[in-house]
Nucleic acid binder design. Structure first.
Lengths: 188, 188
DNA sequence: ATAAGAATATACCGATCAGTATATAAAGTC
DNA sequence: GACTTTATATACTGATCGGTATATTCTTAT
């Protein structure tokens, strides 16, 4: 009966279904079986609740991506690790992953976007660094790290998007196929 | 002084900055210099206003994508046309394109998502059909049209995303690079 | 000129928004 | 047992939400 933690769980579930802006504080506390002052005792605002929630959930994903992104002079191996990290994250916490994407593409000035941006930016920078490191072994990648990091994440999210709609399974083969297609194109 | 049309323009500008759900009817009419009954004289609800707006804006994009997607047994040519169509759309109406993406990734039950879904689905199906057609000339593409359509659009939107953040220019070269990378990978 | 319809405004509706003032209960500390 | 801190509830605030009842003006057709 930990109200503090329970409120986070309830909020995650509601936010991922209908969005941060689309869920009222009243609904959160009612679903959790408490009243408003209880929520405002633990968190100083609705936004504060969201920030705490994101810190908890993003921490897991971020450390997973960070671990997968260590470049040991094998670009195929590293990229496969990254794809696997993202696929695993979206499989074990699909609601949260959906919410992360929705918040990223929310209007630039919205609380949603502003709250998620630092976390997603970190992810992006970690991936970008891989392509920067890879230049030492693949000179022709030089100067294109922005495009590659963005395109790679775009491809990953396209696959995850399909799987969230039930159109696709995030299998081991798909990890290989995704990386292979990114590196060698759809013709090879 | 066409209030009917002017309300659409104002709504587009406000919605693309702060989202459909984030903008009140009051603000729309105040910015347009009219009052609520005027808006409700022309449109039967806030959602009706959005639907009319989307029909007007998406019509342009959709016909442009449709025209670019005629497959004449040259996959490179067709894909370049498609990328060009999207780049042009986002360059000439960046606000609207940003709004389209935000609405697509909005929570599944939200008005935003439900309103944009049919239009984006049409775009997706058009692209998917290209990859289905291309099988007649490139047999190894068979059965992968969902993944390819989604991945291709994901790549396009990744590039547009970078350009909307000012990180990239949607040049003619980038049209070529995007298609070439999709077909042959980043190694070639 | 007059009637009819379209276009607009003033002023309001109930519901919901995030947040709080105040009081009370429970738990831990001395 | 007395006191303090933590945790909770009742009941409220002003602002904003989408939408409307009613009245008036403007335009057009007869």
């Amino acid at each position: 009966m930990d109200n503090r933690e329970n409120l986070l769980d309830i909020a995650l579930s509601l936010f991922s279904q209908r969005g941060y802006e689309g869920v009222g504080v009243q609904e959160i506390v009612e679903t959790a079986g408490v009243t408003k002052p209880t929520l405002y005792h633990y968190y100083d605002s609705k936004r504060g609740l969201l920030d705490t929630l994101l810190k908890r959930e993003e921490g897991r994903l971020l450390s997973s991506v960070l671990q997968a992104s260590v470049y040991k002079r094998d670009i195929v191996y590293t990229l496969e690790n990254i794809v696997r990290a993202y696929f695993d994250a979206s499989k074990s916490h699909p609601d949260f992953y959906r919410m992360q994407i929705a918040m990223l593409f929310a209007p630039p000035e919205s609380d949603s976007h502003l709250a998620i941006l630092p976390f997603v930016s970190q992810q992006y920078e970690i991936i970008e660094e891989v392509f920067i490191q890879a230049v030492q072994d693949h000179g022709n990648l030089r100067g294109r790290h922005k495009r590659y990091a963005s395109g790679f994440l775009g491809t990953i999210n396209a696959m995850i998007g399909l799987s969230l709609e039930g159109e696709l399974d995030l299998t081991k083969e798909l990890v290989y196929l995704t990386v292979h297609q990114f590196l060698h194109g759809i013709f090879s």
